[in-house]
Amino acid sequence: MEHQTRVYENVFEMMPSEENPTPLVRINRLNVHAEFPLYAKLEWMNPFGSVKDRAAWELLRDLEERGKLNNGRGLVEPTSGNTGISLAALARARGHRLLAIVPNKVPHEKKVLLKIAGADLEIVSDELCPAPGLGDGSINLAKTYAKAQSHKYVMPNQYENENNVEAHIKTTGPEIWKQTKGRITHLFTSLGTCGTVTGVGRFLRTKNPKIRIVAVQPTEGHDVPGLRNVSQLEVSKLFDPSLVDDILELDFNLAYTRALDLCQNEGLLAGPSSGLILEGALQIAARDQRGFGVMIFPDNIFKYTSNMIKHIPGLEP
């Protein structure tokens, strides 16, 4: 494969790596802190449009290598959208099927996209007076399929599978270290499955133990797809609190307003989770004054037009 000319024999060759990183783009108009440059890592430049391409690819290859997808067995996975889109498209391109268990609150656009990408969908209502420790309805339903119909389904389980972390140790972490030439002082990320924060965090700490890992989380009751409040984090076995220096709890409405700021001031058509991460990075830049920040921007705005209209009524044409 030839990354210079960007001519590839198949889509798998486009998957990110140290030699083929997603871009880092500096924030110019929205960051007034001259001594604290902030760079956004544009994960929507991945082939299937989000940071989840990395984990999906690692999870899929691991299952293939272990022979778990032989004899027509397909995948079943609880997904809020992005993992499902990556996993469905990758799986279909490799000749496998994916049953995606999707929480009802996921935006309509994402559900349609999952089907377009080739997933079979099952939609469950998750937000029914949840109790701590109970787990998600979508996770439990996926586990049920994998347990009761193991001849038909295997569950990668992005919430518990160390390959989710491994993907970022192998790719995202080394990319950032190389792209910043080791200058990074702060990493800004969100919390979902926690594969990104744990994987990138672990890698960067091996290079420089002083790098601060900052995670943002939306306030409780939020509707930011893919993100979790710490109170919802027990479902993710990949969360390693010892790695994270700061967890900022931010008003979830800022996810939407900051995403709009990025679109209209930086030319970065970033989605709501990126908006929340930018807000966290700006707060830390104001606090710490000096540094070199890298923000993981998980995906772009195109899937979230209905969410944006809900939070920013002026967008209604």
Binding site: V124, L128, A148
Partner: peptide
């Protein structure tokens, strides 16, 4: 179940 699909998926 609350989720009436759960039984068919596995019981």
């Amino acid at each position: 179940d609350v989720d009436t699909k759960a039984y068919d998926a596995g019981h």
